[in-house]
Computed example of a mutant assay.
Amino acid sequence: MDVARAFAEKERLQGLIDAAVLAAAGTTDKNARFAIASAMLSKASDEPLDIEDVLLAENADGSLTGTYSGSIKTNFLQLAGLPSFDLKVSATALASEESAASTDCIYVLASQGQDVLINSGANIYSKTCRVNVHSKASPAFIMNSGAKIDTAKFCVKGTNYIKNGGTLSNLEVGCTPAADPYAGTLPEPMVSSSCTTSGTMDGQRITLKPGVHCATTFNGSPTITFQPGLHIIKGRMIINSGATVNAQGVSFYFPDVNSEIRANGELTFTATAPTTGTYKGLLMFEKTSDASNNANKQQYIFNGSKGEILEGIIYLPNRNVTYNSTTNQVNRITLVVNQMIMNSSNWLLEPYTSGSSTPSTGAYVRLIQ
């Protein structure tokens, strides 16, 4: 039990150090780096780490290394003369002029086992997209026969996986996946207690103004237009089979993990993120500042689209995403999820490159160690 606690604590500390150096490496000012790293460490939902316990070192290539050395007390092994375990973690981040969006477009963050499942009929193609799987579990991913994943890179942190057939191009195991580029940086709107729309809506053509949409269901097969702006989806929005959705210049925000847009198949869906303003680049995102919300991962299904066009950042780190949809042209997205299932989808994919609401220094920051 003491050893298991020590390993769990070391992994938690590693995540904190990774986040701190990634946040701080984007600036070259030494004082600013210290302040940014301190702010990131203080955001930890449990037992924030004191910046005084972390050594920050600037390297000759401009990268930043953070190192923490400490210990954890034992409960049982102290009876055998071992009162504590020494713990040491470090990480190095480098900022370069390469854009994060120009290469990395899928991030799967979980490490619980079978964190990516690629089923028969899944077809994903991208010339430049890199897939980042953070799982070190056994297995980290499973791929079944009849699937084809052809991306620029399929990076898996762990080395154990199950491949029952299919084609998986440019697989690298035991590599360092790119970290979540948006952790702790996205704006979270205040959610009004009153609803702009709610309940069941009928009609062949329905237009929704920006606002809070509460547990809304659309009957029949209407054409639904979301006007440009922020649309807060509170509860489940159900869009029935055969509907057409137009959402140009729109951000969808989910204030908790039980809120979602659920389509029932045969949907034509066109959605693009705003190109200016507070929510620039954000197509779909969710609340992540609530620790209890973050601890309650839920399923999210991109279901049965017969034609789909998406452009923007889809930030759902608390969702186990199932993707069943078909695209009729290239989707340009950056997708961050907890776990991912790829079913019989035909997906043409390239990274989203039209900007985001993330604070920018003009550099792409990545972990190199």
Rank of each mutant, 00 (worst) to 15 (best):
T176Y: 06
D2K: 08
L55V: 11
Y364R: 09
L282G: 02
I238K: 08
S45A: 14
V173H: 00
N296Y: 06
C105N: 07
T278D: 10
T361L: 04
S71Q: 12
N31C: 01
N338G: 07
E47K: 14
K136Y: 03
P255D: 04
M40F: 09
T223V: 14
T151S: 13
N59F: 08
L82T: 10
Y364S: 13
R319S: 09
D86R: 14
Q299T: 15
V131G: 03
I333D: 00
R262A: 15
A178C: 07
A95D: 07
Q299W: 09
N132R: 04
L267S: 00
N119V: 01
L316N: 03
M237E: 12
R130E: 12
K30W: 11
A247N: 00
P351V: 10
F218I: 12
A4N: 06
P139T: 06
V3K: 13
T92E: 13
G199P: 04
G113Y: 08
W347S: 00
D61F: 05
L348I: 00
S71D: 07
L94E: 06
S360D: 13
S305K: 03
L367S: 05
L41G: 01
L64M: 10
V116D: 01
S138C: 02
G242H: 01
A91P: 03
A24R: 08
I142E: 13
T244W: 06
S357L: 04
T217Q: 12
C155F: 02
A60T: 12
R130V: 04
Q329E: 13
N346M: 07
I314D: 01
A273F: 11
T74C: 11
I224C: 06
A291T: 07
D29C: 05
K153N: 10
L77C: 09
L109S: 03
I238F: 06
R205F: 11
D180V: 09
L310C: 01
G165H: 08
S71A: 13
N258P: 00
S325Y: 05
G281K: 02
A263C: 15
G166C: 11
L55S: 08
K306E: 04
S169V: 06
A39M: 04
G211P: 08
C155A: 14
T28D: 14
I206G: 08
E172V: 15
T225K: 15
S305I: 01
A93R: 00
T268K: 00
R366K: 14
M340T: 02
I341D: 11
S145G: 15
D256F: 00
T276R: 04
S42Q: 12
T196S: 15
H213Q: 03
K163Y: 03
N219M: 14
N123R: 07
G235P: 04
E188W: 05
A243M: 09
N303E: 08
I72Y: 09
T322D: 13
T151C: 15
T276F: 05
S356H: 12
P83S: 14
I309H: 12
T67A: 08
Y125Q: 11
S289A: 15
P181A: 04
N132F: 01
Q204A: 14
T65W: 09
L208A: 12
L283P: 07
V191N: 07
P177R: 02
A295V: 02
A39P: 00
R236L: 15
T103C: 00
T65N: 11
N75W: 07
D202K: 12
S194P: 02
G174I: 08
F252Y: 10
Y68M: 01
F226L: 06
I313G: 00
P317W: 05
E311S: 15
A8Q: 11
E97S: 13
S360Y: 06
E11F: 07
